[in-house]
């Protein structure tokens, strides 16, 4: 990829916060997340379950269900303004047309009582595009072919339950791409699929982006997916971004102990597995100290104050006091 194509910012998320307000307590699921996706780029969000990856993405898309609520921040989509302040009716026009969404479970995204063809047509109808049967079918068929489905007619005439997991996910991706959105947000699109199918699906997604003006935000907990398919990575922990940067920088020179621990937890023959003990903290309390402190083997006095995300090298952001002490970067 060339640097020149990547300069245009497609999505810029600033200070995004999401809360789930309950009767007795409030869960601060996402706390001031910043990230951006440039044209021609695949950006990965990685972290353990419960770190707020999916919640952040749903917040951006306006898909949070009560009691979940975006409580602050902005998400600027190039040419459309702040998604978080667009009224619901207009947001529906943006979603699908300008931002495509692929969820983890394809069967949850497909309606079991409509044929696949009808669901493609409904997308066109909802966006005021020509949706006569013949036109719609032709577009759907072309899109299914482009995602590697060899027998599109059989799929179009059928229903979701007749599809395998891999085929269903291809159909959902085809639907997300039907209106040629600039940005696709994919939340664990290949989790639960076989490895062979996983690569086919990821190749498909990548082919849509490379050398184009489009971009992808990919949520995953699979570090291999990030390493092989993403340009930049955002590591989330306890609702916050703890490290961000180019995949090469972050994977080869991780600066946050959490990132190192995740990378060390991948089984490799002959290597001792990093034992990252404990679990993601309770997000009902907003900690004043670093939220990784209880699990961090490097924790020291300064960690009693929550660290800010700082740039320690060009395009390498880290929220850790250790990076100040070691002294590589700004300090």
């Amino acid at each position: 990829m060339t640097q020149t194509v990547m300069t245009q910012t497609l999505l810029s998320v600033k200070d995004l916060s999401v809360e789930f307000v309950g009767h007795k307590s409030t869960v601060h699921a996402v706390n001031g997340v910043n990230l951006r996706v440039n044209a021609g780029e695949i950006v990965g969000i990685v972290g353990e379950s419960g770190c707020g990856k999916s919640t952040a993405v749903k917040g951006i898309l306006g898909l949070l269900q009560a009691p979940g609520k975006v409580t602050g921040g902005s998400a600027e989509l190039a040419g459309h303004g702040d998604l978080l302040s667009i009224k619901n009716k207009n947001l529906r026009k943006v979603r699908g047309a300008s931002v495509g969404y692929v969820a983890q479970n394809p069967f949850g995204s497909l309606n079991p009582i409509y044929s696949i063809e009808e669901q493609f047509r409904n997308i066109l109808k909802a966006h005021g595009q020509p949706s006569a049967k013949k036109v719609a079918r032709e577009r759907a068929r072309a899109m299914l072919t482009s995602v590697g489905i060899a027998g599109p007619d059989r799929v179009l005439d059928g229903y979701s339950h007749q599809l395998s997991g891999g085929m269903a996910q291809r159909v959902v991706i085809a639907m997300a791409m039907l209106l040629e959105p600039e940005l696709i947000i994919a939340d664990e699109p290949t989790t639960g699929l076989d490895v062979t199918v996983q690569r086919q699906i990821l190749d498909l997604i990548r082919d849509r982006v490379v050398d184009s003006t489009r971009g992808i935000l990919l949520v995953t907990h699979d570090l291999g997916v990030i390493a092989q398919y993403c340009h930049r990575v955002v590591v989330m922990y306890a609702g916050k971004v703890v490290e961000a940067g180019s995949v090469e920088t972050v994977f080869l020179n991780p600066a946050h102990p959490y990132t190192s621990a995740l990378l060390g937890a991948i089984p490799r023959p002959g290597h001792e597995l990093t034992r990252l003990l404990g679990s993601v903290p309770d997000l009902r309390v907003v900690p004043t100290d670093c939220s990784f402190r209880p699990r961090c083997k490097h924790a020291f006095e300064a960690c009693s104050v929550s660290p800010d995300l700082r740039e320690i090298a060009p395009d390498h952001l880290v929220a850790c006091h250790l990076s100040e002490r070691v002294g590589h970067g700004a300090s």
Binding site: S164, V195, T196, Q198, A227, L252
Partner: peptide
């Protein structure tokens, strides 16, 4: 070959079978 290396600089050779299982 469908493994995904976590080393961003290592790309394993790709071999694909025809069609699905």
């Amino acid at each position: 070959s469908s493994r995904l290396s976590t080393d961003p600089n290592e790309s394993l050779p790709r071999l694909r079978l025809i069609g699905d299982i």
